[in-house]
Design a protein around this nucleic acid. Structure first.
Lengths: 130, 130
DNA sequence: GACAGTCTACGACACTCTTCGTAGACTGTC
DNA sequence: GACAGTCTACGAAGAGTGTCGTAGACTGTC
């Protein structure tokens, strides 16, 4: 069977994924240092997490160098989409509208961002010209 | 000091909150039955959860009747906003635009919903007429 | 070839979450 | 007033998470 679900990352795992998304493929040491500021957690903690994430299939690792190099197994967008879908289901009864409204009203989006969203709305409204 | 943070509900707690949001103030038995379909969990489980949530301040309870009646301590929108803000921070680097894009593209919103969102966008774009 | 430094692997611990079993209180019925 | 039914309260067990300490392997330097 296929790898089944892409498994929802835990909080600590998500923090690591964020580092990998930002930095690209990274070693344990690099992840540890990037994480130090916000979490203050040690080297072996990051190592263990990355090992677990590797088992779960959240990251892939390249062992060709002495220091293994870890990368996200799927693009950020895929994981993000899953997280949004999960929240949508669990907290908003599936109403994307409500979620979007909360997201927009709880932050200050720039005018360009708003325009970008409006562009997406137009695209969704008139699907390609069918 | 004030009750500090509104504490993020866990998954099981969120499922219960959803029942209370839908049904309004409810007894343990009512919550248990509403939850039975999706979780198949027993009476004492719901009771314990509600007790814990009451301690945490997620719900308030009215003990005037023999069967205590539980209600959400804050409106759904407040909790939802916190959850969105949390996801925004932890998974999207604070970019509401990306979150909204994922939310909109991962679901089929109706034309009316899209219009509603567009209305909110207009409102955000021209704040009151300054 | 001993030593310092860096790496991975692994086990253990504390903590939280979720679930349930059991006990005790209360209420109505015969 | 005994009994069945329903309620709350509480303790405990099992799984999952996040953290680290320690051990063992490898690499380079003197």
């Amino acid at each position: 069977m296929p790898p089944s679900e892409p498994l929802k990352p835990t909080e600590a795992e998500l923090a690591i994924l964020r580092v990998l998304w930002d930095r690209g493929p990274s070693t344990v040491r690099e992840v540890t240092e990037a994480l130090a500021a916000e979490r203050g957690t040690g080297y072996t903690t990051a190592l263990k997490l990355l090992q677990i994430m590797s088992e779960k299939g959240l990251v892939v690792r390249n062992e060709s160098a002495k220091s293994h190099v870890y990368s996200p197994s799927v693009p950020a967008e895929v994981t993000q989409k899953h997280l949004v879908a999960d929240l949508l289901d669990k907290a908003f009864g599936g109403s994307a509208q409500k979620l979007v409204m909360q997201a927009l009203s709880s932050t200050r989006a720039s005018r360009e961002e708003l325009a970008e969203i409006r562009r997406l709305l137009d695209q969704l409204d008139t699907p390609g010209g069918i």
